[in-house]
């Protein structure tokens, strides 16, 4: 075996550290912006941008209570599973101009399964904590997972189907295909409308996936006082807080990969000439900007504009309207392809 054969193992061992650092720091920065901008929308001043960092530091100083009747190892490992899964998800996603670290070693289906893990970990933690409120919260989390995975799956399969028609030689589920061939130029007017509907559905699904305001039935503060996270204190809660921050980065990157995989460098390359690393920096900053805009739309605007849905309204929303919208988008894209516009 040559040196090349060991490269994926080396990537798998060292890349998580860098990506975890990036995900945590930028996730917390996005959380800070979210709180500041939400405060401004409500005519308040809001906390300083580094407030989430303070929150995490404080949470790691607090006592870590494990309830009497809880199952300690499941209770304590739930935040670790959640956080680990999100760091792993970053490995399969393209970060701005950089290709996914493990892009050649796992496709979108793998990513879809990894993304189901944080919710499942939260459920495990809720059920294992022996609190009635947490059990209700965990059950609601389960309902959330069942609800949003359906439209998400339709979106992913629409994309994969379109790519399998457009590029029969490429792997349709590979994220590298997604990044290298944005779909917007390759569809007609019907397909364009379909993609727009898919984008809106994806944004709504993301809000549910990160568990924010209109869809935060799982940890509804005023109904079940914290839900699945109720019994978590100290470092466990701190790790869930971090996982929540990284989740926005992961889901935002997923949206960017699907819908906006454009880089500034390919646009500006004809006007300037800059060294390679400068272009990489510009593209990376552009990626951070895209991520910020998506976080602003998906988290901040949604949570300020809408109050919480009821459980049955969430199910109706995702299984009814979101699924219907994504199916309409799917048929539009199919029509567009078959019609050969």
């Amino acid at each position: 075996m040559s040196w090349e054969n060991y490269m994926p193992y080396i990537y798998a061992i060292f890349a998580p550290f860098a990506l975890a650092l990036f995900g945590i720091i930028y996730g917390l920065v996005l959380k800070g912006f979210d709180r500041k901008l939400a405060a401004h929308m409500q005519w308040r001043v809001g906390p300083p941008l580094r407030q989430p960092f303070y929150d995490v530091l404080k949470l790691f100083e607090k006592e870590n209570i494990v309830p009497k009747n809880a199952v300690p190892w499941i209770f304590n490992s739930a935040p670790i599973i959640s956080m680990g899964a999100l760091i792993l998800a970053l490995l399969y996603l393209p970060i701005g101009p950089f290709n996914p670290v493990l892009g050649n070693y796992g496709d979108l289906i793998v990513l879809l399964y990894i993304l189901a893990l944080p919710g499942l970990a939260m459920m495990l933690g809720g059920f294992s904590s022996s609190s009635p409120y947490s059990a209700v919260g965990a059950q609601r989390e389960f309902i959330m997972i069942l609800s949003y995975e359906f439209p998400l799956a339709i979106i992913i399969f629409t994309f994969a189907w379109k790519y399998s028609i457009l590029y029969p030689n490429l792997k349709a589920f590979s994220l590298l295909t997604f990044v290298e061939h944005p779909l917007w130029q390759n569809v007609g007017i019907l397909g364009f409308i379909g993609l727009l509907i898919l984008l809106i559905t994806m944004l709504v699904v993301t809000t549910g996936e990160v568990g924010r305001m209109p869809f935060d039935i799982a940890d509804a503060g005023t109904e079940i006082s914290g839900g699945a996270l109720l019994e978590y204190t100290g470092k466990n809660l701190g790790l869930f807080y971090l996982a929540d921050a990284v989740k926005i980065v992961v889901m935002g990157t997923l949206i960017i990969t699907f819908f906006f995989p454009y880089n500034l460098s390919s646009l500006l390359l004809h006007y300037f000439s800059l060294p390679h690393y400068a272009w990489l920096t510009i593209d990376f900053l552009f990626y951070l900007l895209k991520l910020f805009i998506i976080s602003f739309v998906v988290v901040t605007v949604m949570r300020v504009a809408f109050p919480r849905f009821r459980v049955d309204q969430v199910v109706k929303f995702y299984w009814g309207y979101a699924t219907l919208a994504s199916l309409i988008a799917l048929s539009l894209i199919v029509l567009d392809t078959v019609g050969g516009v």
């Binding site: 405060a39 001043v45 996270l229 109720l230």
Partner: peptide
């Protein structure tokens, strides 16, 4: 606006300081 100083209201005593 007490959130200026990082004070927020939480849902249960387990999260509270």
């Amino acid at each position: 606006d007490m959130e200026r100083f990082g004070l927020i209201v939480v849902d249960n005593p387990k999260h509270a300081d």
